[in-house]
Design a binder for these strands. Structure first.
Lengths: 219, 219
DNA sequence: CCATTATTCCATAGAGTAATGGTATACACT
DNA sequence: AGTGTATACCATTACTCTATGGAATAATGG
């Protein structure tokens, strides 16, 4: 083996990993299974992709060893191979936000228009939660809540928020969180709650970031 | 704008950044200009790509805002837009090494076969450099040395190593470094020096990592 | 203002990727 | 064993990416 060949093989390997991530649907899938393992069919439904297409995308991720599988009967569950994969996708997100105007444009048009107040950080939440009457809302689907959530958080999937408003006291401050900083669930929950006159703000980022920060997770 | 559209636009933006990096030649180009700015023609020569092809790849990187340009007469210099780009490419490298067997296979076949001793870390080098008779060799091309190098390092581009062996004392311990942990220049320098009976080891990683670690850089 | 040099633009061919619908396989339940 | 269900495989089509060579542009220097 000679110098040029070494370079080619290494750069090729690095590029392969990047290619696996270089597709919007696959990034969505990675964000989704960062919440916890899911079967092909559930991933297809959550993303709106066809089943065959979902299966194909999952196999691209599998070939690059970014995800792992577990079989239970006929059902195959996919999960991230490693926390480092979440960190890498987060790095990609942050780099893109820092360098590409489009991201801030969308945030401004959509996020800022809906939650009037600045989202709060994990540190702020921890501090306020101990002092005040704060209710943490996990607005992700219930399966995701079941696979791990912020201690003390109440599960109110966005879809059922409408029906469960009466459960919520108007005295409390609500902090909603979801899959991550660019997930729209918490934004929509805050918008809905604010419209109904509740005090609601959004946590800056979601569950995977909470867990990666070493904070406690409840099951 | 509605929830799904927001998702699509954001994931699309993230995927675009990943796509810019998802090509082996572009990763090589990024590693190259992480050493300092270079004109199109120099990049083409260093990578062995055709000029038009190099220009096209640079424009892909430019559209994703990963690189910036500076014009001087007819010559256009490309440089990284931000240190975060280096960190991201390093993250990609590390993730790939952790998850994909190919990288370790190449390292084992090529790197381990050539430098008998473990590469040393930056910390080790700093410690040894102050105590012992250590000579640091920058084996990158001289332009890259000129754009910033480890303080006290001697510039001996790999290509001229053969002719300059007599300058080197057999009493010293030589530590060679180059563009990064997967660059072959330092490995080849160590191989050559060892074959000639010199004591030579390789620094674990290269110039950009040294600089990003906040260590002093000399010009 | 013409020639030179550095770079970019353009058209094209070939390779690779994504989505679709149909088919095959593997397991579970009766 | 036979039926149903979950997933993977395959062939096809449309699309995108890479590389090439030639033409165009932009700045410089006689």
């Amino acid at each position: 083996m000679e110098g040029r060949e070494v370079k080619d093989r290494l750069y090729e390997a690095f590029a392969q990993t990047a290619k696996a991530v270089a597709n919007p649907h696959r990034i969505e899938i990675l964000e989704l299974i960062a919440q916890g393992e899911r079967c092909v069919d559930a991933i297809a439904r959550a993303t709106g992709l066809s089943l065959t297409n979902t299966s194909a995308h999952l196999q691209v991720l599998h070939r690059s060893r970014l995800v792992e599988t577990k079989r239970a009967g006929t059902t195959v569950f996919y999960r991230l191979a490693d926390d480092e994969v979440v960190r890498f996708v987060n790095h990609l997100r942050d780099l893109t936000r820092a360098r590409v105007g489009e991201v801030d444009r969308v945030i401004k048009d959509y996020f800022d228009a809906r939650d009037t107040f600045e989202p709060i950080t994990r540190e702020d939440l921890l501090e306020r939660a101990s002092n005040q009457d704060v209710v943490i809302l996990d607005v992700r689907p219930k399966e995701e809540y079941a696979q791990g959530h912020i201690p003390g958080a109440k599960s109110i999937p966005l879809a059922s928020l409408e029906d469960r408003l009466e459960e919520l006291s108007r005295q409390s401050l609500f902090v909603a969180y979801c899959r991550g900083p660019y997930c729209v669930l918490a934004v929509q929950a805050v918008e809905r709650l604010s419209a109904e006159g509740y005090s609601a703000i959004r946590l800056e980022d979601g569950m995977p970031e909470w867990r990666l920060a070493g904070l406690p997770v409840e099951r």
